[in-house]
């Protein structure tokens, strides 16, 4: 019996195309998500992959309700949040957390790391001392306690990304959205962050949606994978099946395009 944390049905979302807007009439809409159906099981890591423009980030933002869908339903923990008002969402916000791609622009440069992590804990009035929660979260992501008193610009890129993770897990949320969180990092920091996420997922039973264009990273982290193309889900499968037996041509092309670090003279010419 699967316990669905998210259940999404017929999700459609569009943006106004301002470049094509006639002077006195409303802008035509560009449909970005074209009717998506899927669910996310509690305690699992789901990977959302696809090329840029496929709608994967838009899908993520609709899940945490930073965007409101045109139609369709998003059930989070049994509650329909697809058109919930900001005040209705307030109760859910703590459980819908995000980790961002670029920690430099998602951490307030004028706050110390301690304030950055404890701020949301204080905001949501969680039990216990916010400073203690910050220290605990920092320890979980493997950073020394003296980082609490530093500013984001005083720590390295890999450390900043860990602070972003600490801020999200400090709230013990039921769901975390991670949007391209390792693409800006060097291989060495990337390997550390992936290993850390693997550990956190196991320790804290996180439910995580991991958006990435890097299928090698997704293969390591995710239990289930959604492949998106032009606003539609072209394939959804367990990670092991998707890689051993991709059903869709688009998925096969994505796989074939990954350059593995080994010499292969045929790779470039193979389609």
């Amino acid at each position: 019996m699967a316990d669905h944390l998210f259940k999404v049905e017929g999700l459609r979302l569009s943006f106004p195309d301002l470049a094509a807007k006639p002077l006195f009439r409303p802008a035509p809409r560009i449909e970005v998500l074209k009717g998506l159906n899927f669910s996310i099981t509690a305690g699992k890591v789901i990977g959302i992959v696809g090329e840029s423009g496929s709608g994967k980030s838009t899908l993520g933002r609709a899940l945490v309700r930073l965007l409101e869908p045109d139609s369709g339903t998003i059930l989070f923990d049994g509650a329909d949040i697809s058109h919930a008002s900001p005040s209705d969402l307030a109760g859910h916000r703590r459980h819908l957390q995000m980790i961002f791609q670029d920690p430099m622009s998602s951490l307030n440069p004028r706050q110390k790391v301690g304030t950055i992590i404890s701020g949301p804990v204080r905001f949501h009035h969680l039990a216990g001392n916010p400073a203690d929660a910050a220290a605990e979260a920092l320890e979980r992501v493997g950073l020394p306690a003296d980082i609490l008193n530093r500013y984001p610009h005083q720590i390295s890129g890999g450390q900043r990304q860990r602070v972003g993770i600490a801020r999200a897990i400090a709230l013990s949320p039921r769901f975390i959205l991670a949007d391209e969180i390792v693409s800006g990092l060097d291989v060495s920091s990337q390997a550390q962050i992936i290993t850390l996420l693997e550990k956190l997922v196991a320790d804290l039973q996180l439910t995580l949606a991991f958006i990435s264009h890097d299928l090698s990273v997704v293969r390591r982290l995710c239990d289930r994978i959604i492949v998106m193309h032009a606003g539609q889900i072209v394939e959804e499968a367990d990670a092991a099946d998707l890689f051993s037996n991709p059903q869709h041509d688009y998925t096969r092309n994505l796989l074939a395009a990954i350059p593995l670090p080994e010499i292969d003279d045929q790779w470039l010419s193979a389609s």
């Binding site: 291989v187 060495s188 290993t195 090698s216 997704v218 390591r220 080994e262 010499i263």
Partner: peptide, 30 residues
């Protein structure tokens, strides 16, 4: 470089790169 890296740093750069075809191989930072 790829079949027989001469320097430990080169070797660890290659090993730190995740590969979809070897999901269970441990991923070692430098």
């Amino acid at each position: 470089i790829f079949s027989n890296p001469g320097h430990a740093y080169t070797k660890s750069l290659i090993q730190a790169t995740p590969r979809y075809d070897r999901p269970d191989e441990s991923l070692l930072p430098v």
